[in-house]
Design a binder for these strands. Structure first.
Length: 565
RNA sequence: AGGGGUAUCGCCAAGUGGUAAGGCAGCGGGUUUUGAUCCCGCCAUUCAGAGGUUCGAAUCCUUUUACCCCUGCCA
C-alpha cells in the first residue's frame, strides 16, 4: 500500500478480467463488498494449480476489501478424509492467507440443502428416479442425440416426497435410486438433462459422521452454498462453464438468500510436471515418490519441504496472470521466482558438496584464524558470521583442474584463485591415489591477500568456496531434478510414468558445511555460495545428521558455455 | 441436434478502431571476492488463415482452420 499509487500507474500491472469484473460491480453499486471462496475437495493434497486459485480468490478479497471463505466441498465422503482437510488448511495458512471466520464445509449446509430438495419436489421440479446407472446413461442420449424422459419423471409430488424420505431413511441400497432435477432431457447442454441432485452413499462422513446416507451432488450443493455464504463472485475453472446454466437454474428456482455469480478462468498447467490429483496420488501410492510432500512433487507441501517460499509462490501466481485461454507455463518462470526471492533474502553460507582436500604448504599447521564474512552481499541487516580458516581445507572437486583453458576461472595447477572471504592461493602440486585420482591438492597462500589483491599485480582468476577440514559439519545434501523428462508427460495418450526422469534425485553423503549451519532451522533458506539455495529437510534432518534439500541451483552460465564446447 | 470455450514473440501476457506494454527464456556488453545478483542493450512491420468494412483493424463483419472442455449416482 503506497501513498504514491496514483503516480505509479504507468508501471502498475494492468488488471485481469476478474479484477475488471469486480471493480465494475463495485463501481456500479451491484455490490458494496465482495465475497469469494476457495472450495477444495479434501480428497488430496493441494498443488501449484490450487495455489493459483488460492491467490486469485484470497487475492481478490484482499485487494478489494472483501472476504474469502475456505470451504471444503465435502459432498463425496468415499474419497475424502480429515488428513486432507488438515493439510489443506496448513497449506493455505502457509501461503499467508487468512480465511474469513471459521472454516466452512458444504456439509454444514446439508440440512438446508435437503430442505431445498424438498422445495423442488413440491414445485414439481425434482423427482426420484429408479433408473440404474446404466439405464440412466442410455436415457441421457449423447452429443448428437437428445435424451429421453425417465419413466419415473411423472411421479406425483406426494410419491416423490415419500420415496425421497425413504431414501434419506436408508431404506434403499446404493445405486437403486437418485433424486433428479426435472429440466430438459433434450437440452444440448448435457448438464441440463435432468441432473442428479442426491445419490445414496452409505458411507461414513468425516464431518457429519453417519447422519446421512444420501449426499448432494456438486451441482446441487455448490451454488447454493455460495448463496448461503453470500459469495458474490464464485470463481472456478473453465471446465465448469457448461455447469453455469445449471448453477443459475438452482439459484433461480430456490428461495436462496443471495445471488452469486460464477466466473471461470483457465487452470494452471506447468511443463515437466503433472498436476492432476489422480496422477499425483498414483505417484504417492506406487512409491515413485516419498509421500505427498516429497520435495519433487508440485504439491504445495512438497514445494514447502523443498524450500520454496510463500512469497515466491505468490509472486509466481501474480506473474502468470489470469485469463480464459489454456496455457502451459514454463517451469523456468517458477524457478525464477524462487531464485528471485531467495537471492534477496537468504543468508549465504559455504558448503562443499564433493570435497577435495587442499593443504596450504606455507600456512602453519597449528594456526587458525577466525574470519568474518557478510551473510549477504547487499543486505547489511542480515549481519555477519565467523568462519575458521586453517591449513587444511576442503574445496569442491570440480573447482580444481590440473590444466584448463582461460575460460576456467577456478583453481589450476600453477595458477591462482581466491578462497571466498579469505586468501588468494596458488596451486603447486597434486597427490594421486593408485588409480590416478587426485586426492589432495597442495597450494601456497599468497601473503597479504586477506581482503586485498596480490601486491605483485597477478590477480586470481576467480573465487571458490571452501571449508576448514577440521571445522565443519558433516551433512547429507539432496539434489533434486525434475520428475519428468518430457515437457508434457501426460499429453495425448502417453503414460506419464514412462516420462519419469531416472535421475530426479541425487543424494550426496559426507558433504562439508560451515559450522554456522548448525543453527539452521526448518523453513529457513540458505544460499550455499556458488551452488544454489538449500534448506533443512523437515522429514529426515536430525541434530546428529543434517540433511539439506537443494531448492534450486544458482543460474549457471558456465555450465552453458561448457556444454557448447 | 450437438453444445460450450480459446487463438497476440520459444513461454506467460497487456491491448476494447488511432498505428503491437511488460515479464520469463534467449542473445550481446558492463560491474562483481558467488561463472550468482545488479546494470545496459537486442529480441512481433505484425496479432491462427482468407476475404470485407474503414482515412485507419489485433480490435468491427463474413468465412475457414486448430486446440481445449462436456455423454460420473466425481468435483
Amino acid at each position: 500500500m503506497s501513498a504514491t499509487d496514483s503516480t505509479e500507474k504507468p508501471s502498475s500491472k494492468p488488471m485481469h478480467f476478474i479484477q475488471n469484473i469486480i471493480s465494475q460491480d463495485l463501481a456500479s453499486g451491484l455490490h458494496q463488498k465482495i465475497a469469494t471462496r476457495f472450495p477444495p475437495e479434501p480428497n488430496g493434497y493441494l498443488h501449484i494449480g490450487h495455489a493459483k486459485s488460492i491467490c486469485l480468490n484470497f487475492g481478490m478479497a484482499e485487494e478489494f476489501g472483501g472476504a474469502c471463505n475456505l470451504r471444503f466441498d465435502d459432498t463425496n465422503p468415499e474419497k475424502e478424509n480429515e488428513e486432507f482437510v488438515n493439510s489443506i488448511m496448513e497449506d493455505v495458512k502457509w501461503l499467508g492467507f487468512n480465511w474469513n471466520g471459521k472454516v466452512k464445509y458444504t456439509s454444514d449446509y446439508f440440512d438446508q440443502l435437503f430442505d431445498w430438495a424438498i422445495h423442488l419436489i413440491k414445485n414439481g421440479k425434482a423427482f426420484v428416479c429408479n433408473l440404474s446407472a446404466d439405464e440412466m446413461q442410455r436415457y441421457r442420449g449423447n452429443f448428437n442425440e437428445p435424451g429421453k424422459n425417465s419413466p419415473y419423471r411423472d411421479r406425483s409430488v406426494e410419491e416423490n416426497l415419500a420415496v425421497f424420505e425413504k431414501m434419506r431413511a436408508g431404506e434403499f441400497e446404493e445405486g437403486t435410486c437418485s433424486l433428479r432435477a426435472k429440466i430438459d432431457m433434450a437440452s444440448p447442454n448435457i448438464n441440463l438433462r435432468d441432473p442428479i441432485l442426491y445419490r445414496i452413499k452409505k458411507a461414513h462422513h468425516h464431518q457429519t459422521g453417519d447422519k446421512w446416507c444420501i449426499y448432494p451432488s456438486y451441482d446441487f450443493a455448490h451454488g447454493q452454498s455460495d448463496a448461503i455464504e453470500g459469495i458474490t463472485h464464485s470463481i472456478c475453472t473453465l471446465e465448469f462453464e457448461d455447469h453455469k446454466p445449471l448453477y443459475n437454474w438452482f439459484i433461480e428456482n430456490l428461495p436462496v438468500p443471495a445471488i452469486p455469480r460464477q466466473y471461470e478462468f483457465a487452470r494452471l498447467n506447468i511443463n515437466y510436471a503433472v498436476t492432476s490429483k489422480r496422477k499425483l496420488k498414483q505417484l504417492v501410492d506406487e512409491n515413485y515418490v516419498d509421500g505427498w510432500n516429497d520435495p519433487r512433487m508440485p504439491t504445495i507441501s512438497g514445494m514447502r519441504r523443498r524450500g520454496f517460499t510463500p512469497a515466491s509462490l505468490r509472486n509466481f501466481c501474480e506473474r502468470i496472470g489470469v485469463t480464459r485461454s489454456d496455457s502451459v507455463v514454463d517451469v523456468g518462470m517458477l524457478e525464477f521466482c524462487v531464485r528471485d526471492d531467495l537471492d534477496k533474502n537468504a543468508p549465504r553460507a559455504m558448503c562443499v558438496l564433493q570435497p577435495l582436500k587442499l593443504t596450504l604448504t606455507n600456512y602453519p599447521a597449528d594456526k587458525t584464524e577466525v574470519l568474518t564474512l557478510h551473510n549477504h552481499p547487499s543486505r547489511e541487516d542480515l549481519g555477519d558470521r565467523e568462519i575458521i580458516f586453517s591449513n587444511t581445507l576442503f574445496i569442491e572437486q570440480e573447482d580444481f583442474r590440473e590444466e584448463a583453458n582461460k575460460k576456467y576461472k577456478r583453481l589450476v595447477l600453477g595458477k591462482r584463485v581466491r578462497l571466498r572471504g579469505a586468501y588468494v592461493i596458488e596451486a603447486e602440486s597434486v597427490v594421486k591415489d593408485a588409480s590416478g585420482n587426485i586426492i589432495e591438492v597442495l597450494a601456497k597462500v599468497i601473503e597479504g591477500t586477506l581482503g586485498k589483491d596480490p601486491e605483485d599485480g597477478v590477480k586470481p582468476k576467480g573465487v571458490i568456496h571452501w571449508v576448514s577440514a577440521n571445522h565443519n559439519l558433516n551433512c547429507e545434501v539432496r539434489l533434486y531434478d525434475r520428475l519428468f523428462n518430457d515437457e508434457a508427460p501426460d499429453a495425448g495418450g502417453k503414460n506419464f510414468l514412462d516420462a519419469m526422469n531416472p535421475n530426479n534425485l541425487q543424494i550426496l553423503e559426507n558433504c562439508k558445511a560451515e559450522p554456522s549451519l548448525a543453527k539452521a532451522i526448518v523453513g529457513q533458506g540458505f544460499q550455499f555460495e556458488r551452488q544454489g539455495y538449500f534448506c533443512l529437510d523437515s522429514k529426515y534432518s536430525t541434530q546428529e545428521k543434517l540433511v539439506f534439500n537443494r531448492t534450486i541451483s544458482l543460474k549457471d552460465s558456465f555450465a552453458k558455455t561448457e556444454e557448447q564446447e
